[in-house]
């Protein structure tokens, strides 16, 4: 059974806020080591979906099955760190709350992995936004989770910091972890994801590889009477354009 082999299996996940459906009937299965990018416009339901997977929000309906009964690692969109504590104190606090066998070793490991060793004693509130985000990510990774959830992890980072973070994420996936992340930068989805899940107004519009998404867009355009600007044949020039055209064709 393929479902049982999946590291993460999501079925019919739905969440309503009052009468508003923030996420509607989302379903997918991830293998170990797979990277899934969740993309969609603002308010599409990315944070709501990741929060349900993280166990922060209770789904209105649907099921989440994990191969390993361990909580996912979660890096929330809004940095959840204590600005009055130092980097090391933040990590140590959460390591202890996670009841890790050796909190100090976990702290040292995360400091090394995120390159924050020489900032360990600094108060988080005094760090740059990029470094604060690294602490935020490090806390999510502390418990060495089998599934890692990151909500717009690169939003506050400069290009060099982004590259470093993707390096880290790819390395984690290479060790067999599932990685799910949402992003605004769709080019990051194309470059660093095995598959993309497109959300629009809470609906799952697409699930497949970036190449498949581009093919769908090309298919959308073929029967169209009006020739698109740019190259007259073949798929859209870049992934971002394809993504925007994909959404526009579906009224988003």
């Amino acid at each position: 059974m393929t479902v049982a082999a999946a590291a993460l299996d999501v079925v019919g996940l739905t969440r309503c806020f009052g009468s508003r459906m923030a996420v509607r009937d989302v379903g997918f299965a991830l293998e170990r080591g797979e990277k899934l990018a969740i993309i969609g416009p603002n308010g599409a339901g990315k944070t709501t979906l990741l929060s349900m997977l993280a166990g922060v929000l209770v789904p209105t309906s649907g099921a989440i099955n994990r191969a390993v009964e361990r909580p996912c690692g979660w890096v929330p969109q809004q940095q959840a760190v204590y600005s009055k504590l130092s980097v090391a104190e933040n990590l140590r606090l959460f390591a202890r709350l996670e009841r890790l066998a050796d909190p100090d070793a976990a702290v040292a490991r995360m400091l090394a992995q995120t390159g924050l060793e020489d900032r360990a004693q600094e108060q988080v509130g005094r760090l740059s936004g990029g470094n604060q985000q690294r602490v935020n990510v490090a806390i999510g990774l502390l418990a060495d989770p089998a599934v890692l959830l990151l909500d717009e992890p690169t939003a506050s980072l400069d290009p060099r910091q982004r590259a470093r973070l993707w390096e880290l994420i790819s390395a984690l996936a290479g060790e067999g972890r599932c990685v799910l992340y949402s992003t605004h930068a769709v080019t990051e989805a194309e470059r660093y994801a095995d598959r993309v899940l497109v959300l629009g107004d809470g609906e799952q519009l697409f699930l497949g590889t970036p190449t498949e998404l581009e093919e769908v867009v090309a298919g959308d355009l073929a029967p169209s009477a009006i020739a698109p600007p740019g190259p007259s044949d073949g798929p859209a020039g870049d992934f971002e354009t394809a993504f925007v055209q994909f959404l526009r064709a579906r009224g988003h």
Binding site: V56, P71, P76, Q78, A80, Y82, F94, L97, E98
Partner: peptide
């Protein structure tokens, strides 16, 4: 304010 609450109540506290 520090957005720590969701992180804490995810099974930690």
């Amino acid at each position: 304010s520090e957005h720590a609450y969701p992180r804490l109540v995810r099974g930690l506290v």
